[in-house]
Nucleic acid binder design. Structure first.
Length: 259
DNA sequence: ATGGCTATATGTTATAGA
């Protein structure tokens, strides 16, 4: 089962590039972030005609996540538990049934800039809620995959110019510690496990020729519960997507699970 | 480098992203 995550930076803007990548990469499951669309405005037919079930959790203008799946999804829930007042669409869960069941969590973690400030407080509070949810999911028997745009640069080797990120919410020690607290529950980050080299990036800014200079960062991650990690067969990052017509500033990252 | 570009809605400018 090939499972990918892709921050598309707007579904309307990616109405050509996203289907083109889907047809080439042929993932079974895709987590999308920053659909920047309400549910009613999401072009489901683009994906349903390709055999995908479409589950969205959108909002107007910003944020928004979705799951596309060629295998049946059930038990879909929308929103990260733990704060009834949180209206930002950043979390969606579903259970996919192939040869076995896997619980899927798609996430768009808050950016948090500027730090310090209320946006950074929201980021850290969100991560504490995510940790609680992750711990609860580990209590079950079903393998768990939590994938998406974490907006966390875990280590200095994950940025071409780490010094430029020292004061940034994506790289502040407190942000990275919060990410490690989630990992330390027992999750494995799939991409690094299979390819431990430094300089593996998933995002290149639109500005200042970042792509041409390979001035990238790694902020999209796929976390696996122990049961899911046992099924890991392969990983990849579709870096070529960044060099195409009208690209997102992120590229897809994916895993292959033996299910 | 003082965010240099991109996307969306609030729309000929503001807000957000990372």
């Amino acid at each position: 089962m090939k499972i990918a995550t892709f921050n598309i930076n707007g579904i309307k803007a990616r109405a050509e590039a996203l289907p083109a990548w889907l047809d080439e990469a042929a993932p079974d499951v895709v987590f999308l972030q920053e659909i920047k669309s309400v549910d009613e405005g999401f072009p489901r037919e683009l994906f349903e005609t390709r055999g995908y079930q479409v589950e969205t959790h959108g909002q107007k203008g910003f944020n928004g996540v979705a799951i596309l799946s060629k295998l049946p999804l059930s038990g879909v829930t929308r929103g990260l538990p733990g704060d009834e007042t949180d209206e930002q669409a950043r979390w969606i869960e579903a259970t996919v049934t192939g040869q076995r069941k896997v619980r899927l969590c798609g996430l768009y973690l808050p950016n948090g800039n500027p730090a310090p400030g209320p946006k950074y407080d929201y980021k850290l509070a969100w991560m504490a809620r995510m940790r609680d949810r992750a711990a609860a999911l580990l209590q079950g028997e079903v393998p768990v995959v939590m994938a998406g745009d974490y907006n966390i640069i875990p280590q200095a080797e994950d940025a071409a110019r780490p010094e430029a990120w020292r004061e940034d919410a994506l790289f502040l020690p407190e942000s990275r510690a919060a990410y490690r607290r989630i990992l330390n529950l027992g999750f494995t980050e799939a991409i690094r496990t299979r390819d431990p080299r430094p300089g593996v990036y998933t995002f290149w800014d639109y500005q200042a020729g970042a792509w041409e200079k390979n001035n990238g960062i790694r902020i999209d991650h796929l976390l696996l519960s122990p049961q899911a990690a046992d099924l890991l067969q392969g990983t990849g990052i579709d870096k070529d997507a960044r060099g195409r017509e009208k690209p997102s500033d992120h590229v897809p990252a994916w895993i292959d699970l033996a299910t």
